[in-house]
Nucleic acid binder design. Structure first.
Lengths: 148, 148
DNA sequence: AAATTACATTTGTATATACAAATATTGTTT
DNA sequence: AAACAATATTTGTATATACAAATGTAATTT
């Protein structure tokens, strides 16, 4: 990936600015690839993220704020995200009996099934995305990203 | 920034997945900070990007596809982005006399003025974002990001 | 010159996101 | 217990984005 080529400039970009542009370009590329991978399954990245969180919960249901806390991109509207997943039959929602303000959201059998279908393809896609990296480089990259 | 802390997990995330999540988290953080910086000026990141591109053009006007080519995040709808900037008086749009399919978009005096107002603050914000990095580390990070 | 193709932009539509306000429930204070 | 504050979620609204189709113009082919 060449920053100057993508944004079609021949000017010298200061390293601070270049880094920030670079991050946005890489993130755009990665999320575009991920979106394409999930598209055949009718899921957005965020919806997929919610399903994975719910599977990670094991048997115990999650409420909306728990889901939101664990999301990579914390949207201000998990309600509507869960609505979409309900409509697709991948989650079920019930009012918590002990605290009627809360809702209990659980992944359904169908939800688990579609995740299983996606699992392998997702791993492949991730491998393709980082195919140019050695393990050492990935570790180094993660170290550097921690500095933000 | 600690990935596991932000998404509140105690599981071991494979390095490939962790890298991709890490990128998204960093990008979210950076764009949130940038959005806040621009908010007092009533501009979105994309609108600011368009104004900078137009200023970079010098005196010669740009058409929509040129702007789109040079944008960091290439949206499928530069028309409406330019509409917003027109409404604010920061750009002007005319039909190209030689090829009536094209439009010529130019930054106005007011557009240049608001960019001048933002310039310094933007540099400060960028410095703050990368404050934990040495110059060597920034260079290394850019090298690694090129591998995507 | 009429028909076809390519180009540049605009418009329509569905969905996504940000943010504020509203609703419902629970907990705490007086 | 009434009043108030805190919590969890939902709803409303404005704006943003993705994608496809439509429009208008220019270039090319027959």
């Amino acid at each position: 990936m060449n920053v100057e080529e993508i944004i079609k400039t021949n000017k010298d970009i200061p390293i601070e600015t270049r880094t920030i542009i670079h991050l946005a370009l890489v993130n755009n590329k990665v999320s575009e690839i991920m979106t394409c991978t999930l598209k055949p399954f009718g899921l957005s990245i965020q919806q997929f993220n919610v399903l994975r969180i719910l599977r990670g919960q094991g048997k115990k249901p999650a409420n909306l704020s728990t889901i939101n806390d664990r999301m990579v991109t914390k949207m201000s509207n998990t309600t509507r995200l869960v609505d979409k997943l309900m409509a697709k039959g991948y989650v079920e929602r019930n009012i918590c009996p002990h605290n009627r303000r809360k809702v209990e959201i659980k992944i359904t059998e169908n939800g688990l099934k579609i995740l299983e279908d996606i699992d392998g393809i997702k791993i492949e896609t991730e491998k393709k995305i980082i195919q140019n990296f050695t393990n050492q480089e990935l570790i180094k990259l993660n170290e550097l990203l921690d500095k933000f």
